[in-house]
Amino acid sequence: MSAVTVTEPVGERRQLSDRWPILLFIVRRLAAMVVMLALVSFLVFSLVHLAPGNPVDALLGQKPRTPETVAALTAQFHLDRPFLEQYAIWASGALRFDFGTAIQSGLPVMTQIASRLPVSIALGIFAFLLTMIVGVGLGILAAMRRGRTADRVTTASVVVGLSTPTFVAAILLLYVFAVLLSWFPAYGKGSGGLDTLWHLTLPAIALALGSCAYVVKHTRAAMIDVLDQDYITFARARGLSRTRILLTYSLRNALIPVITIGGVVLGGLIVGAVLVEVTFSIQGIGQLLVQSAGAKDLPVIQGVTMLIGVLIISINLCADVIYMLVDPRLRLGRR
């Protein structure tokens, strides 16, 4: 889009912060989060319940079965109870942070999530760092070289980057760098440490591509906005060095809006990770969700959805709070 200044536009946040101190705001948002999670969990529960097929069939697979086995498993997972009772059983467990047992593996859902979380987090952080470092860097570069080749190339890449679906990027990277050139491994998470880093490089790039373009675009816009301000012109007139102006004046002010989009970026990365994990055969949270959705493994679907929900809501909350803290206009309770 055209380079309009970037700030969070949601009016409600402002109004709230005007009236209430930040703490109250956080408490209110946390309460809303609980309600929202309850709503989402009920929604997902109903969906899975209404859909054809049942998890016992998925568990037993394409194999003969005895009626006794089916009956025992059905009872074990409370599938013979009325719908609302099933939900109540799940919810009362969830309140105690007990998300039950995965139907497919027989492992506690928490254990299963915990074993897959590290690689997903590593991938997420890797991609996030790539996004922010490369994105902000290119954004500043483009803004400083406005209208020149570097800017044009960057801006054009941004449009393509924003328009490339994560899985398409993943396949192209896989083909070029893992298949044709064999520079990077093509699957899995490696054996820890540097090896894992090496394995996660391509997935992280694929994941970061879209969000990176997004950050470049916003950094560039914010930077240009700041560079056009009178105080920069004044600083220039005073004969301050380019570097000094960049570091003391422009960067600080330009980065405020960029920090706040960090939340949106992280949220997008969590979702994009699903496709990247599938393409690169990384057994993380995203793949767990796809697999358990296919097998109607309700406890796992619920566990993962809750986890992602909590993550995204908390990230958004953090972004809002940081935004309030760094933006002096908001901090002082004025418009």
Partner: peptide, 16 residues
């Protein structure tokens, strides 16, 4: 915002 669209679709499409 809490549950992005692609996730909903993965669950819905995977289940239904």
């Amino acid at each position: 915002w809490a549950i992005p669209s692609l996730l909903i679709l993965v669950v819905v499409a995977g289940v239904v």
